[in-house]
Every structure is written in C-alpha cells, then in structure tokens.
C-alpha cells in the first residue's frame, strides 16, 4: 500500500475512531484503548527495559562491569521493541501482558539466582 494511501486510511479510521485492531466503534473505548497502549509503551516499556538491563547485567557470562554496560545497551533496544509491541498487539490488555510478564519473569530469575549484589 502506498504510504500516502495508508495514511489516508488511518486518517479516515481515526475520524471514525478505530485504527487499531481491537478498539472498535465507540469513541470512548477507543480513547481508553489508545491511552492504555501509550501508558503501556512508556511505563511498561521502561519496566521491560529496566528488567532486561538487570537480567543481562546479572546473567551475561562476562566480567561484572562488561555485563552491566552490555545490559544498558540492550535495554535501549528492548524499550524501542516494547513500544512497537504496545501498538502492534491485538488489544491493550495483550500489550500490557506482553511487557509485564517477561519483565516479571526476568526479575524473578534474577532474585531467585541470588546473583544480584
């Protein structure tokens, strides 16, 4: 699809209130859905980024300082991917789940391993 035409479609759908797959029909549900996704992208994204930084800092098979720095590098990439996921997911609920679940698992593994200082 020509990018100009996709933007056209988006604009029309936005005017009708539902550019994203599961936020249908009513204006309120749409605004709620989008707000939820934005919050997921910003805050859930940071949670995923921070938990990956921690996970990699603790588990990468490198010296401590190298692993910590590598963790921060990867955290940036995770944040961008998280933001894209928040809007590509089928629903706002899925968006949150897809971010918080891996974050929780990563932190759980870190805590269980006892490797954190």
């Amino acid at each position: 699809m020509d990018p100009l035409k996709s933007i056209d479609t988006i604009a029309r759908q936005f005017a009708m209130g539902n550019p994203l797959s599961s936020e249908r029909a009513s204006g309120d549900r749409f605004v709620l859905g989008v707000t939820s996704r934005v919050a997921a992208a910003i805050f859930g994204g940071y949670a995923l980024a921070a938990s990956s930084a921690t996970f990699f800092a603790v588990f990468l098979p490198l010296t401590q300082v190298e692993a910590t720095v590598a963790g921060t590098f990867l955290a940036i990439v995770m944040y961008v991917c998280a933001a894209m996921w928040a809007f590509a997911a089928r629903s706002a609920w899925q968006a949150w789940l897809g971010l918080l679940a891996p974050a929780a698992i990563a932190m759980a593994l870190v805590i269980i391993s006892g490797r954190a200082a």
Partner: peptide
C-alpha cells in the same frame, strides 16, 4: 543516550553494585 545511560537506566547498575 550513552552519556546519560548510567543515570536513566540505573537498574543493571543497582543490581551489580548496590552491595
């Protein structure tokens, strides 16, 4: 992002250096 990374992404640093 590199110069500010240790401030805005403190998570990994805290994990390894909070002692």
């Amino acid at each position: 992002l590199i110069p500010i990374l240790s401030t805005v992404m403190a998570a990994g640093i805290i994990a390894n250096y909070a002692h």
